[in-house]
Amino acid sequence: MSNIHILLVEDDYDFGSILKQYLEVHDYQVTWVTRAQEALSVLKQSEKMPVSIAVLDVMMPEMDGFQLAEKILLDSPEIPFVFLTARKLKEDKLKGLRLGADDYIVKPFDADILVLKLRNILKRSQKQVSAEVHEKILLGSYQLDLKNYYLERNGKIQKITEKEAALMSYLFRHKNRLLKREQILQDLWGNDDFFSGRSMDVFLSRLRKYFKHETRIRIESTRGIGITFYLDE
């Protein structure tokens, strides 16, 4: 059994049971719960076996998957997450994107596809962590902490997600250069499909808001080509 720990939050007993077994067959450790509050309890007690990724059903009683994701982001922004849902509404997909989901998977789906998606997300996450070597980066008047996922400026701390930190670090490493959208998407999202493109746009908007008080930083989009992260040092 691998040390990858998946938190599965799914209130359909039949579907949840089958999916848990399928993921375990692929050598993952799986904690399956049927309610959002149970998921939050698991996260608080996961010191011995930290959660590697969360798979969240959207439609649940009491607290839906979107609300659960918001709470996870507050306490554990380093944990990547994907949504599972039977809803195909564009508004739901956009909401998932804005929250920072790594994927939005509509039921019914091929379980093999889910396993591959989870594997790719985890690979990218692990590569990003090893590449950063848990360092700190100076971005103008901001300090980016890649270990604890926060931005600090004038003593004020802004918590950020793992994906936001990875994108900031990536842009910093390629600063003052025009980067093709497809290359950024392949390197950080693993593909350049529509979902990933919209997701990246959401993250870029967040970064612009974070750095709005820093005149030495500009994130500019060149239509049809790519992104340039300008940093005057």
Rank of each mutant, 00 (worst) to 15 (best):
I6A: 04
V55F: 02
G140C: 09
S41H: 09
L114E: 04
T215V: 11
M60L: 01
A86F: 03
L151I: 05
H5I: 05
I18P: 04
R98D: 09
E214D: 14
K180A: 04
D92G: 03
V30C: 01
L116P: 05
N176L: 04
R206Q: 08
E91A: 13
V55S: 02
S17T: 11
L144V: 00
S196F: 03
I53L: 13
G224Y: 07
R218V: 11
N148K: 14
I121R: 10
K212P: 05
D11V: 04
G140H: 09
M60C: 01
R35V: 00
Q143H: 06
F66C: 14
G197A: 01
L144S: 01
N3Q: 12
V58I: 15
G197M: 02
L7W: 04
R87N: 12
K88S: 15
L207A: 11
E162C: 12
V25E: 02
V82A: 00
E91Q: 14
N120S: 15
T228S: 14
G155C: 06
H26P: 00
N120P: 12
R177E: 12
V129D: 09
R87A: 09
L188F: 03
R223Q: 08
L116T: 14
T215W: 06
S17E: 05
S205H: 12
L179I: 04
L204H: 04
T222D: 07
L188N: 05
G226F: 09
D57L: 00
I18N: 05
L116G: 08
V115Y: 03
S169Q: 10
T161N: 05
V9C: 02
E47T: 15
F66N: 09
K123W: 08
I217K: 11
D64T: 07
K209L: 11
L89C: 08
K136P: 08
E91N: 13
Q21L: 07
L167G: 03
P61W: 01
L178I: 11
E38D: 13
L118Q: 03
T228K: 15
S2Q: 06
F15L: 01
S205E: 10
L84P: 01
Y149V: 03
